[in-house]
Design a protein around this nucleic acid. Structure first.
Lengths: 159, 159
DNA sequence: CCCCTGATATTGAATTTTGAACTCAGGGGG
DNA sequence: CCCCCTGAGTTCAAAATTCAATATCAGGGG
């Protein structure tokens, strides 16, 4: 993936889209925090309770509380009341629709992490519940045909 | 995308993979920082010079220096000497192979950002240089056939 | 009443980030 | 020689955030 203006030999280059109008930059402002990413990971694994998240992540209490509140406020997580037998009512945290829409992103991150961080396969697969086949994230064109990342270039939208 | 053990009605749930063995968590440790994401975005837009990045991002100098050094150390960016006419030798920062492998992730993030942050289309497209067709990130099975995220479930790998 | 678990808040120390200023490095020009 | 310039990096102190330890609160049960 490269900028299609790369025939310009100058080393000086500014981003094609200013930060304030760039969806990628805006997403980075929301997601650019370690604990935020780790909490969303927990949510994708189906972990919903504060104490379970804390046990899995080793997050400081006030940091976890803060980030969960922010994720709820931003609309990525939602609070869900629950009550276990013999216990009082509490609230769990589940992915909202906007949060669930990050699934592909988190899968892509996982694929990258397998190659470059863990340097080996993850102990879990994502499979298609209907077909049983393993799934991954890839680049496709508008007809769903596979494409190669090496052929991908950025271009201003036709207007 | 859900955990395939979701037939278990208990609200108590721990992540299927411990944080230390999870490629997603490991990637989050590397990428879970606002400036890091914004700098990588710059790199994907082809921006390589310190001063261009600083102008685009408004990053404090010491923060930009720090993150660039870390990205080089982690192997996502590499330093490239350059010299403009009438100027001295300097160093630019370009994506390494590992950095380029984040392209799909950053495209996925962009797609999410379009829907949930910017709430409209980005002013640029990613297109296939060979076909001219716009490209996007999607879920596919191992034969490249499209799959639906709603059918995606996590499952332990067969062993 | 007490105990328990689980969620949130508080406090102070430690760490990180930031804005402002400074430094350094080469090339060019007078 | 000196000065200027741009660009990259450093330093410093103030501001902000994070973190560990502790405190508080909330219901259910005994």
């Amino acid at each position: 993936m490269s900028n299609s203006a790369s025939t310009d030999a100058s080393i000086r280059r500014r981003a094609l889209v200013p930060k304030d109008a760039c969806p990628m930059a805006m997403a980075a402002e929301i997601l650019g925090d370690r604990w935020t990413l780790l909490i969303l990971r927990e949510a994708f694994y189906g972990v919903q309770r504060y104490d379970d998240m804390r046990a899995d992540l080793g997050a400081p209490r006030s940091t976890l509380t803060d980030r969960l509140a922010k994720l709820v406020e931003m609309g990525l997580l939602e609070r869900r009341p629950y009550q276990e037998p013999g216990e009082r009512a509490r609230e769990a945290y589940g992915l909202s629709a906007a949060g669930r829409d990050l699934a592909v992103t988190f899968m892509a991150l996982t694929q990258w992490g397998e190659a470059h961080a863990l340097k080996g396969p993850a102990p879990v697969d994502v499979i298609d519940r209907k077909t049983g086949r393993p799934l991954r994230v890839a680049l496709v064109d508008e007809k769903g045909r596979p494409a190669k990342i090496e052929n991908a270039v950025l271009a201003p939208k036709a207007r």
